[in-house]
Design a binder for these strands. Structure first.
Lengths: 129, 129
DNA sequence: CATACTGTACTAATCGAGTAATACAGTAAG
DNA sequence: CTTACTGTATTACTCGATTAGTACAGTATG
């Protein structure tokens, strides 16, 4: 049985480019285990209709995802999710280590110590509605 | 004696807009205590010459800084740093609490727990060249 | 072979942010 | 009064990113 990755719960913000958000969505699906190796992705035109965007915008997302390695495409059979240990690791790196690293950089820029940072983190972690 | 805030150690990156970087620089000078209430800022044209940018770019930075409240301007005497407890607090908020809060948001987006985050922080804090 | 799908390449249009050029209004100092 | 500074308003230019329009090439299916 072919599992098809679906996109009903993808909702766009209006600050990041659409094609980035699409790619990021797929990346997170993979990261969370909701999309696995071999899972089928909708065709460009299907997805465009689904998300109400231009097919070329979708195409740009696919191009990006392919370049980043977690989507494979064949001319006639469309695109599928591609993962293996290395891919999973690199996604994990980007979504966590990279995130943390960028944060550390900013924190140091304003002279925060690690202790102060951890303190603020614990204070603010559950402080959101 | 009039203390003049100086800008020799402001160096631009090429990803953020120049006028944002100028304002951010001043904000950090205040935050670090290097610029205090009443300190004089160079005129638009002076600063433009100093930084090799267009006077209007500088003007845009000043407009922003004034809107954000930590710079005051008079038509003929130029601009000076303005701070008080409230300003200092709001700068502190932006540069720390806001920073942390944005980070928490991103971390939760990729399902990181607070424990995992603190762990990563400690691992990566001193890992930079 | 014809139809209806795939993906792709190329070009054009749009849009907004950032920067720059220029001219104007006011004032302190000589 | 003139000069040389202030800041400011208005307009135009540039540039790049994003999105859109259109046409093309290939293939599986009937």
């Amino acid at each position: 049985m072919t599992i098809v990755v679906h996109f009903h719960n993808l909702q766009f913000n209006n600050k990041d480019p659409v094609y980035i958000q699409i790619a990021y969505f797929v990346k997170r699906q993979i990261h969370l285990g909701f999309a696995e190796n071999g899972d089928k992705l909708p065709s460009r035109r299907e997805m465009a209709a689904l998300l109400n965007v231009n097919p070329n915008t979708v195409q740009k997302a696919f191009k990006l995802m392919e370049e980043e390695g977690y989507v494979h495409t064949t001319s006639t059979q469309g695109s599928t999710v591609y993962t293996n240990e290395a891919i999973m690791k690199s996604i994990e790196e980007e979504l966590t280590k990279q995130l943390v690293d960028d944060f550390i950089k900013s924190a140091k820029e304003v002279s925060l110590s690690i202790d102060r940072v951890t303190e603020l983190l614990r204070e603010q972690w559950n402080e959101r509605e």
